[in-house]
Design a protein around this nucleic acid. Structure first.
Length: 571
DNA sequence: GCCGTTTTCGGCCCGACTGTTTTCAGTCG
């Protein structure tokens, strides 16, 4: 059984228990266990076999027993019984914004509402207002929540949220009453998808700031407006929350609102252990409530004995323990990237001339750029025949003389065919400066087949890196069913680089796989897979993912200088 | 349900906002 499947069932148990009215701490225990398993870099089956489940912080006797039953028999009686009590449709209601377990429980028990459709019609008929704790406004809000759920299905891709956030910040910089200003929340942590956008400001006149905030031209609706917190919906339906605090609390609030929740819970418990209390207003002495620090984030981490933890690492995946030992890596920086080795030109399915790509790359401060077009059998993407490869190589030779200050490498994104063979002959592969390999067809293979297909591709001596390793497309295509550990081990053995594909709907490898690669000493290349000039800027999302995967400059191929890369390519 | 060299019982992060109340419960982050 996959770790992800076990985690999902634990999350669902937590949801059911919530609706049943169990105490908060019990459902939280299930969620914490689920979260731990989700990011585990070992197989849950192995942990069960070796009876090591309780080694994980947050998994005790009870949950360990349930996981063991689940993994060994494929079923869990406790879970099956719970599911009989609460129908799936009732659980689905948890996704409606503004509705929580208590209200859902009342709706189910008192009005026998069993799914979102029934809820919608009950709201429209005004049936909810007679229940204790419900009113006409509640009905309206629930209907609005349902509409939103139907429309957005939740989360925005990182690039969409990033651009929205950037522009909003730019607008807010025009407000004279704001002293300091920052993005917070999952966008500051650069998560691959963003639920809503958090912005933090410090000011002595919060009311003026709030008025300014809701006056932004892209605001569609104001959800709530208070003196410390205001929420709006943008025209593209993304929610933005602004919090305003006094300047002496700015650091504490930034730490608090950046999250993740799991990171913060841990931080608070460390504060308590040291005799402090940590909240969004600062770090206080526990007994006397005396303010210690809070103006800057750095001083909070410092006071608690930790080195500063960059936002991208704050997921409670071991960063706090490592920061206590002062052993966090110095994360790769955006300006460390010296080139992009996966760009499509108009030779295949890109839209730009190689010359224009080179000029833009130079403008970005790169030392080199690698044009990696599709290989011959990928007809739909105008994959290059061996003859056209020769033509392209000739053109690049000329361009390299013509444009100083940037080196163009001629590469390929060579298809790995279903049997694991590469799509070019040895003779052709030899002509390229580097060879990216990747899967572009038949994504529904079973795990063993798909894993072997990739492994065979990596075993080819000409392979330089594995492009978009899992082939997932966020919210469109599931990742290939792969034995990722086996693939990473093979990458280490064959000295194949793993790509972090920076395309916002790919981000593949993802953060967790990237960390797994790092732990195995597998090297990474961060590429954009750009098909036009604008998309070259996507590199920032790949770097963000690398940072979330704990990577330092030295872990990444394309942080190296041109002469070093040439050496690696055997030129 | 988890955890523990101050605890094997009694804690567990906590404040803001809304909508329902007439002092507070539910939701959210």
């Amino acid at each position: 059984m996959k770790n992800k499947d076990v985690a999902e069932i634990l999350y669902e148990i937590a949801n059911i228990l919530d609706i049943k009215g169990e105490i908060f701490f019990k459902t939280r225990a299930y969620r914490m266990a689920a979260q731990k398993i989700e990011v585990l870099d070992e197989k849950i089956d192995d942990l069960v076999d070796q009876k090591r489940l309780t080694d994980i912080e947050g998994i005790g006797q009870a949950i360990s027993k349930k996981i063991t039953e689940l993994v060994e028999t494929g079923k869990l009686k406790y879970y099956e019984d719970l599911k009989k009590e609460i129908p799936q449709g009732v659980l689905d209601m948890l996704k409606i914004s503004g509705l929580g377990p208590r209200k859902i429980s009342a709706l189910y028990k008192k009005l026998e509402i069993r799914n979102i459709e029934q809820l919608k019609s009950a709201c429209k008929k005004g049936k909810l207002r007679n229940l204790d704790g419900f009113g006409e406004i509640t009905e309206k809000n629930i209907l609005r929540g349902i509409k939103m759920l139907e429309k957005t299905s939740g989360r925005a891709l990182l690039n969409v949220a990033y651009e929205d956030g950037r522009k909003y910040i730019e607008f807010l910089e025009g407000c004279k009453e704001i002293k300091r200003l920052s993005l917070a929340g999952s966008l500051r942590r650069r998560k691959e998808t963003i639920g809503d956008l958090d912005i933090l400001a410090s000011s002595e006149k919060p009311k003026i700031v709030m008025d300014y905030f809701v006056d932004y031209e892209n605001v569609k609706r104001v959800l709530l407006k208070g003196s410390t917190k205001t929420s709006v919906i943008l025209n593209d339906d993304l929610q933005v929350d602004l919090r305003v605090v006094s300047d002496e609390s700015f650091g504490a609030a930034l730490q608090y609102f950046t999250g993740s929740k799991e990171h913060n819970v841990k931080m608070r418990s460390i504060a308590i252990k040291n005799g402090y209390k940590l909240n969004e207003y600062g770090l206080f002495e526990k007994d006397t409530e005396k303010y210690i620090v809070g103006k800057d984030e750095e001083e909070i981490y410092k006071k608690l004995g930790l080195s500063f933890i960059p936002p991208e690492l704050r997921e409670n995946r071991g960063e706090i323990e490592t920061a206590l030992e002062k052993k966090l890596p110095k994360l790769v920086d955006y300006k460390d990237i010296k080139g992009d080795l996966h760009v499509h030109s108009n030779y295949s399915d890109g839209v730009e001339k190689i010359e224009d790509i080179a000029k833009k790359a130079k403008k970005m401060g790169y030392e080199y750029v690698g044009i990696a077009d599709h290989s011959q059998s990928l007809r739909i993407a105008r994959g290059l025949s061996e003859n056209r490869v020769k033509k392209k190589i000739e053109e690049i030779k000329k361009l390299n003389k013509k444009i100083p200050g940037i080196h163009i490498f001629c590469g390929t994104e060579c298809d790995i065919k279903t049997d694991g063979a590469l799509d070019y002959s040895k003779k052709t592969l030899e002509m390229f400066d580097f060879v990216g390999i990747g899967i572009h067809t038949k994504f529904k293979m079973d795990k063993k087949e798909a894993t072997n297909r990739i492994i065979k591709g990596m075993e080819n001596n000409y392979s330089t890196f594995l492009a978009h390793p899992t082939c997932r497309i966020i919210s469109h295509r599931e990742p290939l069913d792969l034995d990722i550990e086996k693939i990473l081990d093979k990458a280490e053995e064959t000295n194949t680089y793993m790509e972090i594909n920076s395309f916002p709907d790919r981000l593949d490898l993802n953060d967790i796989h990237t960390k797994m690669a790092k732990d195995r000493n597998v090297k990474i290349v961060i590429n954009t897979d750009a098909h036009n000039l604008d998309q070259l800027d996507f590199i920032r999302y790949g770097v963000a993912t690398a940072r979330r995967g704990w990577l330092a400059k030295k872990d990444i191929l394309n942080t190296k200088k041109l002469n070093e890369i040439k050496k690696i390519f055997g030129m």
